[in-house]
Amino acid sequence: MNLFRLAGDMSHLFSIVLILLKIYTSKSCAGLSMKTQELYTLVFVTRYLDLFYSYVSLYNTVMKLIFLASSFGILWYMRYHKQVKQTYDREQDTFRHYILVVPCAVLALIVNNELSVTEVLWTFSIYLEAVAILPQLVLLQRTKNVDNLTGQYIFFLGAYRALYILNWIYRYWTEPKYRQYLVWAAGLVQTGLYADFFYYYLKSWQAGEKLRLP
């Protein structure tokens, strides 16, 4: 494992820690999209089915379990915690799941490496992860009320993708067998979705202000 990959994973992990910290300390999930969290949970469940049939390393297994548990934990807080659930912006978070889930499922059935249940589900998770942030970005645009932690959460999620791209470039040159075009294409799309957000995030940061969206 190279440093880009490790830094990417840590960035991903850190973004989740930030969310849990925000929810736990402020007892609020204001500004967070439950739709995005549900989509990520679906991504983890469909991708990490391989926990049952393949083993890569202890590191991978532990990280997969952390991602699964934390995503269910976040959803539990947003849905069932007495105080937290009252802070959820239900009226603003109106993005429909099927708008993303259906096209990703269809695409996974058409463009995949092998037409088997596990492979299609894995491919579906790759496509869905690429677009799962959209409800969160829409909510952000709508509420314009971006607290620091939500801004940092999205920043670290974007950083995770950017670091993975560096990891792929590194692996492309160092591992001749490593060619995952499908994953790379989805990863590029995913990182691209953050470009606009990054622009405003860095601008606000430079000006030493809170994140403001136009």
């Binding site: 990959r5 393949s54 390393s57 995952q180």
Partner: peptide, 10 residues
Amino acid sequence: RIAKELKDEL
């Protein structure tokens, strides 16, 4: 076709 050992990322 992608070998399983290539799926070592998260």
